[in-house]
Design a protein around this nucleic acid. Sequence first.
DNA 1: ATCCTATTCAGATTTAATCTTAATAGGATT
DNA 2: AATCCTATTAAGATTAAATCTGAATAGGAT
Lengths: 146, 146
Amino acid sequence: MEAAKHSPAQFQALLESKGLKYTYERKMIFDEVSHLKEHFDADSLYERFKGKGRRISRDTVYRTLPLLLESHVIQKSAGAGKREFFERIGRKGHHDHMICIKCGKIIEFQCEEIEKLQEKKAQEFGFKLTFHDHRLFGTCKDCQHG
Amino acid sequence: MEAAKHSPAQFQALLESKGLKYTYERKMIFDEVSHLKEHFDADSLYERFKGKGRRISRDTVYRTLPLLLESHVIQKSAGAGKREFFERIGRKGHHDHMICIKCGKIIEFQCEEIEKLQEKKAQEFGFKLTFHDHRLFGTCKDCQHG
DNA sequence: ATCCTATTCAGATTTAATCTTAATAGGATT
DNA sequence: AATCCTATTAAGATTAAATCTGAATAGGAT
């Protein structure tokens, strides 16, 4: 008894709670990101819509991503360069990243204890945690020789 | 018996380990950031040098900040807008941030257990942790009513 | 059908960060 | 001290990311 894959329910719920509409464009963007297996940035997502039937403007993409973050459809990710990267929260669930400052390699890691501690800390401040960005920078195994 | 305040020893050590020189400009930048009590971004730091005796170019500031991060003189911080923020690691030591997505308020928090778990996770991957960026986004106490 | 508000589009604009080329600094060599 | 050599910096141009602007559209309410 598994929930249907890629249900927009959480997204729709968030929109409703904010008095926003589940528009054609928001549907399209939800659908696209919820099927993306790799990480992506706002602009590359925009490029994906070019030439696919109806166009979706860059601005709409940029405006929709924070809503998807907030509804836990996507999470912050990491990638080369200075853009902000995202990725859908898929079967493997939420995870964070280590980035090698020498070769750029990205390692995914999960730590349930850190997640819990984060939540606990937030509660201490009466802060309602929505999403987070946690990236570890350093040197990967292969780049440490010499 | 306290260590001298704002010693460039760690910074100089890092430079040496990389075969880089402790130049006049790097001294100036070290000195400036090690006395800054507030967070700052690269560009505002650059502006500080304008009109102060010898100029330091924007590019030099941008190139020096990662070295200061790496030598633990500064850490990643958080602030309004999309710039990258930094702050010196002062008496209170390292800490991370919660950012309210409604009002922009920034709350500092410390969690020794999270720091340790991070380090442990890094070790699992043979990853040598240098610095990190950990930001929690959500809604602060005051913005949760209604 | 008309009105009203939210939303979107398209492209211009802004702004952050990096790149380019030439100049400079400072150590090593003779 | 003069020359050479490499790292570093300056200044401003360039690139690229993200947001803004004004007009157009959508879709629900009256």
